[in-house]
Amino acid sequence: MSTQRVFTSVFPRLRVASSKNATTSLAQQTQQLRCYSRPTATLRPSGPARSLVLSSAAASAPRRVCVPATSSTQPRTLSTSASLSHGHVDTPKPGEELWVTFIDKEGVEHKIAVCKGDNLLDIAQAHDLEMEGACGGSCACSTCHVIVEDPDYYDRMPEPDDDENDMLDLAFGLTETSRLGCQVIMTPELDGLRVKLPSMTRNLQSSDFN
């Protein structure tokens, strides 16, 4: 009997604790607290009327809808320093909003009103969603990987170029409708786009134990 075997048979609980349970408990706590995480200065939760309009999402999933407040508070969402080029998005003018929904790894939906021309990485970062842009949105890493939920929307986007495909090849959990957030630019055709954010950590199986 190998040490590995002994380890997993003597400590079956440890195996579970270090993968599944951990994720769940963290996820639950995150979800519970998610409602406090919105910067109220910039974004206010939509009223009931707005929710009605947007009720197409799955009823069971927790949802938040964010609409921008007045443009005067807009700089709140800017980057931490002037040198940062990403994370900047403009507030859409009333009536010109395009809607994009991010579904985070806990299944929480974040519906956001954005401007034409913004890319998904900037949008996600400006709204404090868990999406890294390690290379600053220059298509040189795969940390802003998103999965387009509806293949129809995927087909409406311009094809990924070689550089993007090269990076997508390295993305964890690559799918047929994977894209890099920094390369997806919002257009009126993409209004109503829904994308999933993959987990930023590894979910390990016991077989991965050293």
Partner: peptide, 9 residues
């Protein structure tokens, strides 16, 4: 150089 942008973070 673009790979080094993670320094911002």
């Amino acid at each position: 150089a673009e790979v080094k942008n993670c320094r911002e973070k």
